[in-house]
Amino acid sequence: MAARKSTKKPNVSADELKTYYREMLLIRRFEEKAGQLYGMGLIGGFCHLYIGQEAVVVGLEAAAEEGDKRITSYRDHGHMLACGMDPDGVMAELTGRAGGYSKGKGGSMHMFSKEKHFYGGHGIVGAQVPLGAGLAFADKYKGNGRVTFTYFGDGAANQGQVYEAFNMAALWDLPVIFVIENNQYAMGTSQARSTSTPDIYTRGAAFGIPGEAVDGMNVLSVKEAGERAVAHCRSGKGPYILEVKTYRYRGHSMSDPAKYRTREEVQKMRSERDPIEQVREMLLTGKHATEDDLKAIDKEIKDIVNKSAEFSKESPEPSLDELWTDIYADATQQQSA
C-alpha cells in the first residue's frame, strides 16, 4: 500500500490546525536554538535534531490519550516537547544543568518524564523497541487500556531485537504501536543501501502485525493513521505498525556534514513538503488565520524558546554530590505504575 494521500477536504477545525502549527513550530524553533547553543559550546557530545520530522510526533500525540506511553531513540527532543514536557527542563538537560529533566546526568539522548509517561530517550539503536513492548506488556498485565507508542528509525528497523519484539508483541497481543520514522537515512547510509525492502511496514506481515505507510510530512495524515492504530491496539487486537515516511533536514547529529545527499534533495523537500508550511498554507487559504495571527504565534513560540535557552544557561551545573546519587533506588523508593 502506498502512503495515503488525503484528497478529500480535511475534517479539521481551525483551532486544531493552529495547535498543530504551534506545536510543530515549537519543535522547529527549539531545535534551531539547540543547534545554536551547540555551536556555542553550551551543549556537548551528541545532539540529534528533529528538524523536518515535526509532523510525526505532533500528529501521533493528537491521537493519544492521557496515560498512554511513549518511548524513542536518541533523536528525542521533538517527542518530549510534543508530549508536553517543559522546554526549560529539556533545554537545561541539553546544557547539562541541574534544572534538566535528569538533573544534567542524562543529556540529549537520555531523558525521561514519569509525569508525562515519556520513557526515554535511549542511546542504543533499537533497544527501545523491546522496552516499548515491555511497557505495553505492563499495561496489558494491569488491564488499564493504555497503549504505548514505540518510535524507531529506518536504521533501527534492521536490528534483530526489533523482530524479537515484533514476535512477542504479536504472540501476546501487546497494545503497542511500532512507529517507524523512516527519514530515509540510517546516519549516512540511504535506505536503498541498507534495507532489502523499500516498504519496512510490510515486515510486520511475517508476524501477523498489520501496518501501513503514512505521509509523515502531513500532520493530518499522521493523525488519521495514528487514530486507526490506537483504535486497533486499544480494542485488544495487538500491535500495529506505522511506517511514517519523513525527512530530516539536518545531519544525523550536529557533527554530520551530510555529504551523502545533495543540497537539492534537501531543498526540494523543504520547499515542497515542509510539514509546517503545509499547515500554514491550510490556515491561510482556508481563512482560518491571518498573517498577523500567525506572526503572533511565531512570536509566542520564539519567546518560549528564548526563555528555555536563558533557563538552560542560568540553571547551575549539578552539584558534585549528584555524581553519587540515583545509582540505586532505596528500599522505600517504591515504583508505581
Partner: peptide, 11 residues
C-alpha cells in the same frame, strides 16, 4: 528488553 520495559512500567 521486554521485561526491563515492564519494570519501567511498574511491574
Amino acid at each position: 528488553g521486554i521485561a526491563t520495559g515492564a519494570a519501567f512500567g511498574g511491574l
